[in-house]
Design a protein around this nucleic acid. Structure first.
Length: 128
RNA sequence: CGGGCAGGUCAGACGAUCGCUGGCGUGGCGUUGGCUUCGGCCGGGGUCAUGCUGGAGGAAAGUCCGGACUCCGCAGGGAAACGCGCCUGGUAACGCCAGGGGGCUUGUAGCACAGGCUAAUAGCCUGUGCCACGAGCUACGGAUAGUGCCACAGAAAAUAAACCGCCGGUGCGUUCCGCCUCUGUGACAGGCCCGAGGAAAACCUCGGGCACGUCCAACAAGGGCAGGCAAACUGGUAAGGGUGAAAUGGUGGGGUAAGAGCCCACCGCUCCGCUGGCAACAGCGGAGGCACGGCAAACCCCGCGUGGAGCAAGGCCAAAUAGGAGGGGAGGGCUGUCCCGGCCCGAUGUGGCGCAAGCCAUAGCCCGCACCGAGCAAUCCCCUAACGGGGAUAAAUCGGCGCGGACAUCAACCCUCGGGUAGGCCGCUUGAGUCCGGUUGCGAAACCGGACCCAGAGGAAUGAUCGUCCCACGGCGUAGGCCGAAUUUUGGACACGCCGCGACAGAAUCCGGCUUAUCGGCUUGCCCGCCAA
RNA sequence: GGCGCUAUGGUGCAACGGUUAGCACAUCACCCUUUCAAGGUGGAAAUGCGGGUUCGAUUCCCGCUAGCGCUA
């Protein structure tokens, strides 16, 4: 296996990217997290998480916004703001997890800095 | 300058930092296919870095219509079902668009009639009808093909008749009513007489009487008459009948016993003809007194159209696992290869357990018969006195061959093939394309020429954070000039600063429309108001 | 992505195009009871929104809004 070399290379390149490798891309991955993982909630978020088989692999994230939270514009904005948090702070979150984030309705209007702090605290306490 | 209507167009700008994603190029890493002279060469796709370049809309929305495209189905005709429906044109097509026609509503002006006001044939107001012009709306085939419905109210709601009313006749006559006259009863407002009171004859009030008089109130009988007529019956009418959304053409005049298109004028309607128009339709003329209420977004009739499903269509590649088809196959596989041994799977026999499917243990890898060979004695025969030797033969067992049975159609396993899931690739964005110019057309649009390439994602990109500016609005504050009321004071727009807010909304195969949502900016045309020249 | 259905008082349901939109439960007031419950009497309360057809619309037609379901 050559996994050991690749994260080191990408980490040296940049620490604020959000490439395809760290996203959940298939329905089966989401189902695995829902079925086999634990969950933790806060005021603004609901988080599902599950260990990957390789502990030193890159953590992968998925975002799911239900239709009741608004139209397509509102839902897209929710996902973009969460992606931005993950993109900037991805290195501070531990490796080897699959994480699915469900935002609640107040995420669309809350200030960005508060959201950032709350999500990071939630993930830090959950993945301990 | 401001406002309104209609159309077109734009969809905050700039910058910094960090990202996502398509294309083209370069490089690194690992992977895979083909060819090979085994040195390599040519590709495919993945990932990472880097350079250049592109990255939401006018509605991307709703999914209401119409197409392109794809697959499936399909001899022809009809029916059913669904949709559409004035005419002409545009278009790939449409339920869309353009132009035209008809209808409805509304405004203005005119004419006719009715009613009211005023001294007034003049004028004003209201209502009805007709016509002209302007604006808006219009799912706008057929109601003499049929069926159905039209509540309440009203005489009546669809064949036009019944009812009330109106009118003629019978009733009808010396007999009912009315009127005239005479007589009588009766009455007494008028008249006369008497009495009482007011001082008082005349005057006034009250009471009583008379019938000369009068029939103004009433009754009876006789005579007469320009008269009238109930109930009921019969006939003529459709003018009128508070209603209603709608009442069997409308208005005016003539006419009549009363009336009526019964007759006439104008308007409307139907039919015919002519003219104009491609047509819808319009105009004119003639004929007909008029026979035809509304609803088809009620059933329906007529005409036209429609095969079904949809890019998650459809096509290609294809892991693991479990099925399928064909062939081989009672043994097979693994332990690198050979032998031995061992293990696993399979089927078979036996035993045990279990209702059963099946599970566990164990045995050996098909069985029977005949023949041949090996095996060959302690059996038989021969030699030997004996030990011993020689020969023959049976059975178990092993091997070979033949025949028969089992198997061959079940099965581990092997080979080949096919469908196909996850997943991947194509479809996928060059198209009824966009912009500019010209020509034709009232226009929708069409044609010609030139230029250009303008998102292709797929748990789903096209952004996040911050700063500066801009526009409109709201709030607060400041002090400056202006306007209005005016005693300090207060209101309005302008100016400056700060804060807040920044429309509707996100491509999902692609187009043409429709509908819906939407803060505003710019611009074109028309109309209205103000100011200036 | 495609297709279909529904919307009526607070709730669950009715209503041929034609009264003042009906029924049950709930709710409010009064009566009954020592009180509560039950019972009785009376009241309030609704056609999702906007247009159109019609004399007249909950009903018919069109467009929105919301909810629900089916399919792959």
């Amino acid at each position: 296996m050559h996994d050991a070399a690749k994260p080191a290379a990408s980490a040296s390149r940049s620490n604020r990217s959000y490439p395809r490798a760290c996203r959940l891309l298939a329905r089966a991955n989401f189902e695995a997290v829902y079925d086999g993982g634990r969950r933790r909630a806060s005021k603004q978020f609901l988080v599902f998480f599950r260990r990957r088989t390789a502990l030193d692999a890159v953590s992968r994230f998925g975002i799911s916004v239900k239709k009741a939270l608004g139209g397509a514009v509102v839902r897209n904005r929710l996902k973009r703001r969460i992606r931005e948090i993950l993109r900037v702070h991805r290195q501070e979150i531990g490796t080897g997890w699959d994480i699915v984030i469900h935002p609640r309705s107040s995420v669309a209007t809350a200030p960005f800095a508060a959201l950032e702090r709350e999500l990071l605290d939630l993930l830090a306490s959950a993945l301990k």
